[in-house]
Design a protein around this nucleic acid. Structure first.
Lengths: 206, 206
DNA sequence: CCGGCGACTGAATGACCATTCATTCATTGC
DNA sequence: GCAATGAATGAATGGTCATTCAGTCGCCGG
C-alpha cells in the first residue's frame, strides 16, 4: 500500500474514531452526573452517545476506565492550561488569582463536569488514592511552587509552609465548587475566585 | 403488668439492642472504609458485627440507611460538641481555633471514620444534596456565626462576607482531612488546625 | 463486481447481592 | 413445666447489569 494512501486512510478513519471516543466520554459525564456512577448503566451511556453498548468496549476497557478517563483528560487540560496561563504573569498575587479563576471557570462552565469531578470521582478510597497520586499531585505542586516563588520574591510571608498554604487554597476552591454545584441558585462560580484569593492573601484578622 | 416490671424489662432489653445497633454501625464504618460502600456487602457488615445478615434489617431500613445513619450520628455529635466547646470561649480567634481543632481531632482519631466521611459519603449527587441540606448547613452556620460575631466584636475585617470566609475555613479543614486520610505517612492531623487558622487569620501576604 | 476487512451491534450470559421470610432459639410470665 | 413472645438466623429469591461475541453492514482496493 502506498504511503499516501495509508495516510489518507488513517486520517479518514482516525477522525470519526476520535469523535466517537469523545462522544462516549461526553455522554458518560452527562449520565454519571445525572444518576451517579454506580446507578448509571453502560447501556445508558451508550444510548446517549448514540452507539450500541458493545461499542463502548471498543474504546474503553471497562466502566471504571470511563471514569478514570474523564478525570485524566480534565486534569491534563487543567495542568496544561494552568502552566500556559502562568507563563506570562510575574506578580505572585496575580499568579494565584489566575490559578483560582481558571479552576473555578473550568467547573463553572459545565455543571455536569463539576458534579463528576466534585462528587462521582470520590467514589472509593482506592479510586481516590489512584487519582491523587498522579495528576492531582502535579496540580497541587503548581500551587505550591507558585507560593514558594512568591515567598522568594518577598511577596508572601516566609513563616508559612508552602505546602500547607497550597492545601488551604485548593481546599477553599474545592469547597466553593462543591457549594456552587449543590446550590439551586444560579450564580457565577468564577466570581468566588477573587474572594478566596483576597481573603487568603489579606487574612481575616485586622 | 406492674410499672416497675415494665421498666426493668425495658432496661434489660434496651441496652443490648442499642449495643447491637451500635456494633452494626461501627462494623459498617470499618467495612465501608476498607472496601468502599458499593463494593461492601451487607453480609460483610453483619459478619464483622457478629450478627446474621438478616439482623441488620431489624435495625436499619436498608444499606443506604446504614450510610445515612453514620453521617447523621457523626454530625449530631460534632454539632453538639462544637456548641458546647464554644460556650466558654470569648475570644473570636480562639473560637475558630476550637472549631478547627475539634474538626480535625474527630477525624484524626479514627481513620476509618475519616474515610467514610471524606470519601464514601460523597457517593452521588443525590446523597450529597440530602446530607448538605440539613446537618452540614447547621455546621457551616456555626462557623459563619462565629465569624460574624468576631466581626461585630472588631476582631475580624468587616469587608469579608462571613459566608465566604466560613466556606474557605471549612474547605481548608476538609482538604487537610482528606490529605491526611490519603497519606501513607502517619502524622497528627490535629496539628494542622492551628496552621490553617493562623494562615486564614494572618493572611499569606506580608 | 467481488472478497475481505474491521467497525459496529445488541441479545445472551453469568455473576453478584440486597432483601425477605419460614424457621429456630432463648427468655419470660404463669 | 409450658405456652407465648419476639429476637435472630441464613438460605432462597429475584432483579440487575457489566461484559462478551457471533453475526451484520458498509466500504475499499483490485
Amino acid at each position: 500500500m502506498p504511503a499516501a494512501s495509508a495516510r489518507r486512510l488513517a486520517a479518514v478513519k482516525a477522525t470519526p474514531a476520535i469523535d466517537k471516543r469523545d462522544a462516549i466520554l461526553r455522554a458518560a459525564i452527562k449520565v454519571f452526573a445525572r444518576h451517579g456512577y454506580f446507578q448509571s448503566q453502560v447501556a445508558d451511556v451508550a444510548r446517549v452517545a448514540g452507539v450500541a453498548a458493545g461499542t463502548v468496549y471498543l474504546y474503553f476497557r471497562s466502566k471504571d476506565d470511563l471514569l478514570v478517563s474523564i478525570f485524566e483528560r480534565t486534569m491534563k487540560d487543567a495542568i496544561d492550561e494552568g502552566r500556559a496561563a502562568l507563563a506570562d504573569v510575574a506578580d505572585p498575587v496575580d499568579r494565584l488569582r489566575r490559578i483560582a479563576r481558571l479552576h473555578l471557570d473550568r467547573l463553572g462552565r459545565d455543571r455536569d463536569l463539576a458534579v463528576v469531578m466534585q462528587v462521582e470521582l470520590r467514589q472509593s478510597i482506592k479510586f481516590m488514592e489512584r487519582c491523587s497520586s498522579t495528576h492531582l499531585q502535579d496540580y497541587l505542586n503548581i500551587i505550591r511552587r507558585t507560593i514558594s516563588d512568591g515567598q522568594a520574591a518577598g511577596a508572601f510571608r516566609n513563616d508559612v509552609s508552602p505546602n500547607a498554604a497550597a492545601k488551604v487554597l485548593f481546599g477553599a476552591l474545592d469547597e466553593m465548587a462543591t457549594n456552587w454545584m449543590l446550590s439551586r441558585r444560579k450564580y457565577a462560580l468564577a466570581g468566588d475566585a477573587d474572594v478566596v484569593v483576597d481573603l487568603i492573601i489579606g487574612g481575616l484578622g485586622r
